[in-house]
Write a protein that binds this DNA or RNA. Structure first.
Lengths: 235, 235
DNA sequence: ATAATAGTGTCTTTTAGACAATATCAC
DNA sequence: GTGATATTGTCTAAAAGACACTATTAT
């Protein structure tokens, strides 16, 4: 980095959030409806300016909490949060030069955001429908990148558990994979695979019955974060 | 994105480059020696301000060309270039608020940068030695992230060919894997694996002799970019 | 009993890894 | 020839995928 002493062009820096969840048997994303121009009335990813003295991840964490009440981390009431990518084409915002550091948040199914205050226009949308309609700025590309990142990371990490409540069944975890990937998986092979990967799942010793059928064992996410060997989507 | 009309804090935005190559049987990184404070005389990743009206990838491409003469893309005289991650802790630069969008560049072995002009202080360093000595700002963390990204991507993409000249032998490709991963690989199993992955390698029909031993077949990179199934570093 | 879901076992095909054997060069 | 590297082939162990079968619940 060699600085030109004084003269450097000023930028606005924002964080945008691709917040994904599995709700109602579908992959959904949190979107707000813009109240101002440009793109007034059009859906957009939630986001906002990074403040002075605030780090990028901290800004994303603040936005996440403001929109969903969730905090970063693992466990109850927490979401997985990671940096996704940065978008800075010169014309992406017609008003000024804005660089947006997009973050990816994955959370278990959440209730509809409370209608009131800042989050008035926030809602969960099925991802495919969100991508079919118009999105403000370059948010369609950002959303696509976020979904693709999530799909890819299910293959080689234990990230799918971020879409589950702290305790969950193997079926629930399988549904997450099936919904995010859009592919059916063999329940028996899936069960053998996840339970035989050391450190992936931790047995609570308890079971839950949900409708007819044998009650399922309850698991917690284990310590392992990377899967060796990975799960694969295609042969 | 909801803008606060006028008041947003101004940032400087830079691109930093983690330019990696395989030279002299080692993974090497391009570093410059800083001429000014802070960190005068300390090594740093090459980089600079993003200009007005210039995209992030374009800025990285410009920096890459300035420092190495390489352009982005595939083929002769070209390097693979992708965005790595963005670093924006408030105190990462003592002078002002700087957000750096780091990029990863992978190139075949290159000659020493010409000593003269801006690149006066640029040189290829073995990565392990670079990480052992001090690096300016948070560049040690950026370099570590870049190396880890490169190592990971060799597993599930054909990116290793970016470290090779346009035409190369299977041995050369294997040496790339061995050097980047730091693990020896069985030449026979490696050969079978890469030649049997459809679209990975394209046979030129020609061979080259290098020292004693049977001449090796010359290949080009094929059209496939993602490897299914991936190569794995560990069992 | 019947239907539904959970979980185990078994078999086949594919792939990874170890390593023998052959091919083609420099010397 | 000898030594070096390239390439093919063979064998074994591990993993993936298909699917029969048992277990435990609601109705």
């Amino acid at each position: 980095m060699s600085y030109d002493a004084a003269g450097y062009p000023p930028f606005a820096v924002t964080v945008d959030l691709v917040a994904l969840t599995v709700r109602d048997e579908a992959l959904q994303v949190l979107l707000v409806t813009r109240g101002e121009e440009p793109f007034a009335g059009v859906r957009a990813l939630p986001g906002g300016f990074v403040r002075e003295g605030e780090g990028l991840l901290a800004a994303a964490e603040r936005e996440l909490a403001e929109e969903t009440g969730l905090h970063a981390g693992t466990g109850a009431g927490r979401a997985h949060l990671e940096q996704l990518a940065t978008y800075g084409e010169p014309d992406r915002d017609p008003r000024m030069r804005v660089v947006s550091v997009a973050h990816l948040a994955l959370a278990p199914s959440l209730p509809e955001p409370r209608p009131g205050g800042d989050a008035a226009a926030a809602a969960w949308l099925v991802v495919d429908e969100a991508l079919a309609g118009p999105l403000a700025f370059d948010h369609a590309a950002i959303l696509r990148d976020g979904v693709e990142r999530a799909r890819a990371k299910l293959e080689y990490t234990s990230l799918a558990t971020a879409f589950c409540t702290p305790e969950f069944t193997v079926s629930r975890l399988r549904r997450v994979y099936e919904i995010v990937w859009g592919t059916p998986l063999d329940p028996r092979n899936f069960h053998r695979k996840v339970t035989s990967t050391p450190g992936f799942l931790e047995d609570t010793g308890r079971t839950v019955a949900d409708g007819p059928g044998r009650p399922a064992a309850l698991f917690r996410a284990g310590a392992t974060t990377t899967l060796h060997p990975p799960f694969l989507r295609e042969g």
